[in-house]
């Protein structure tokens, strides 16, 4: 059983960031990067399956991103797995969830993966669509926002819980192969050990282009996306009335406000 785990290096923005000249995104100088929080959980799930079933399970992290995105693969490989895949090409800049999914689907086919485990969403754009777009392109069974998984190698079907709104869950069976998007809280992601971090540096990361999988430039990037950014801008947000002063003064003011509100309730 082979499990492909697409992980993402997400951008977080500085205070007082500037929009780039074309008006379509934040200037790259104002971006910091970290692993998408959800992807820690999907990778942990893959690690757990490998630990349970040993050599029957191969787990491969994949990222679509530039050189710096190797960091997220190293982060995964420090916890387990033997190799990673990174796909990049300048034509992939400004890809939306669907265009990224085009690449992931090709890698899943190329790797003969049985399962693709993605995060439910990424914290930067929060489209919550990449995983399910992969399922659409592969025409695989799928479940979104998965909060519990029971997979055994070679099983024809697996059992998962979908986390729905308002605390309700739905238990369903899903045919294999399948794409699952994994929700926070499904497990407790481990931290990488120092030894693991050292070992990860020796593990191979295969770097490929979308063209290696037969995708054309027109199928990825902004041109291959299902939406295009017309403009990005800092919204005019309302701001709370700030309660200032020493901690004692701030607490006193909160108490006054609360007592007033309770009195009026």
């Amino acid at each position: 059983m082979k499990i492909l785990v697409p992980v993402k290096q997400v951008a977080i923005i500085d205070e007082d960031c500037e929009i780039r000249d074309d008006g379509k995104n934040v200037d790259v100088d104002f971006l910091d990067y970290e692993i998408n929080e959800w992807d820690n959980y999907s990778w942990e799930l893959a690690l757990n399956l490998q630990e349970t079933y040993g050599e029957d399970v191969e787990i491969v992290p994949l990222t679509v991103g530039p050189d710096e995105a190797d960091d997220v693969l190293l982060n995964c490989l420090a916890k387990g797995g033997e190799r990673g895949i990174r796909v990049w090409d300048d034509a992939l800049v400004d890809s939306d969830s669907f265009a990224i999914a085009q690449v992931i689907a090709k890698v899943a086919e190329h790797e003969n993966a049985d399962y693709v485990l993605t995060g439910t969403l990424s914290s930067d754009y929060s489209f919550a669509a990449t995983g399910m777009c992969v399922a659409g392109l592969l025409n695989w069974a799928h479940a979104a926002v998965v909060s519990k998984v029971d997979i055994t190698p070679d099983a024809q079907q697996i059992t998962v819980n979908r986390e729905l709104e308002a605390g309700i869950e739905e238990e369903i069976t899903v045919e294999s192969p399948a794409v699952l998007s994994i929700q926070l809280g499904i497990n407790e992601p481990r931290y990488a050990s120092l030894r693991g971090i050292k070992q990860a540096k020796a593990k191979p990361i295969e770097v490929m282009s979308h063209k290696d999988f037969g995708l054309t430039d027109a199928e990825v990037g902004e041109i291959g996306s299902l939406s295009k950014v017309r403009k990005m801008y800092a919204p005019e947000l309302s701001q709370a009335e700030l309660i200032e002063g020493t901690v004692a003064e701030q607490a006193k003011r909160i108490a006054e406000i609360v007592k007033e509100l309770k009195g009026g309730a």
């Binding site: 669907f98 439910t120 929060s126 669509a129 777009c133 399922a135 479940a143 979104a144 939406s227």
Partner: peptide, 17 residues
């Protein structure tokens, strides 16, 4: 989130969540 990305991907229609 489960069904709409599938339709969008298969038909390649415009899509935003």
């Amino acid at each position: 989130w489960s069904c709409m990305p599938i339709i969008a991907a298969k038909r390649q229609c415009g899509f935003a969540t």
